[in-house]
């Protein structure tokens, strides 16, 4: 059952750069998909279009049956509540504790305080950080901060988790740990995961579906993939 369908999608920025051209992708519920490609290949634009940070210049982007390309700015928050996003730079609030950072996502959507606590604790347990919930982000390692970011992304139990180079700032061992957590979330919670990455080792080890973008065009789609190396790479 498809969760995401991108149809004839183009994205041309105001400066004339074509980031994505004639992109057609279908991703089913429960899939774990790597999106790979060189810098400037359109990975981030593709990812951003899924959570409607960018609007396609042309074409359709269906997420959970809704064409997000047509979504009004004032309604984007409804889409964001159904998806979790993990960033390379974590985007944690430095003045909030780990618990508060994760709870922030639930408070933002107006959930009752008594419902927030169990959900936050469960999410922190999922990423193995329950014992650090009173720490502040600057007291954590990079890997731990990324785990907080993942906990914040999954606390609302989204059907889709979008990860934009989540291991970009981490060393190989920690990166494997993070991808392991994502894999566990995918398997245990059935969350669809789309992860943009540059990390060949991880892609080769995981044997998941791989989408290769080159100059904004889908250059490869390997269902049981490894890191696809094209001549240009």
């Amino acid at each position: 059952m498809k969760l995401i369908e991108v149809k004839n999608c183009y994205k041309v920025y105001n400066n004339g750069v074509t980031a994505v051209a004639d992109l057609n992708v279908i991703i089913d519920k429960g899939e774990f998909v790597f999106v790979i490609g060189a810098s400037g290949s359109g990975k981030s634009t593709f990812i951003k279009m899924l959570y409607r940070e960018e609007k396609p210049s042309n074409g359709k982007v269906f997420v959970g049956g809704v064409n997000v390309a047509k979504l009004r700015n004032s309604k984007v928050f409804k889409l964001r509540r159904k998806i979790g996003i993990v960033f390379q730079d974590f985007k944690l609030l430095p003045k909030l504790t780990v618990y508060e950072n994760v709870a922030f996502a639930l408070e933002a959507i107006g959930l009752h305080t008594k419902d927030i606590r169990p959900k936050v604790i469960k999410a922190l347990e999922n990423v193995g950080l329950k014992d650090k919930m009173r720490s502040f982000p600057n007291q954590l390692s990079g890997g731990e901060q990324q785990r907080v970011c993942i906990a914040r992304a999954i606390v609302n139990e989204p059907k889709l988790l979008i990860c934009d180079e989540p291991t970009g700032n981490l060393d190989p061992d920690i990166s494997k740990e993070i991808v392991g957590i994502l894999d566990k979330i995918n398997k245990e919670l059935g969350t669809t995961i789309i992860m943009a990455t540059h990390d060949r080792d991880i892609v080769n080890k995981m044997k998941k579906r791989v989408l290769l973008l080159e100059n904004g065009v889908l250059a490869g789609d390997d269902k049981k993939g490894s890191y696809i190396v094209h001549e240009s790479n």
Binding site: I85, K91, L93, A105, A108, I109, N156
Partner: peptide, 8 residues
């Protein structure tokens, strides 16, 4: 930015 991304 974070508030927007988490669906506020």
């Amino acid at each position: 930015e974070i508030m927007r991304l988490v669906g506020s």
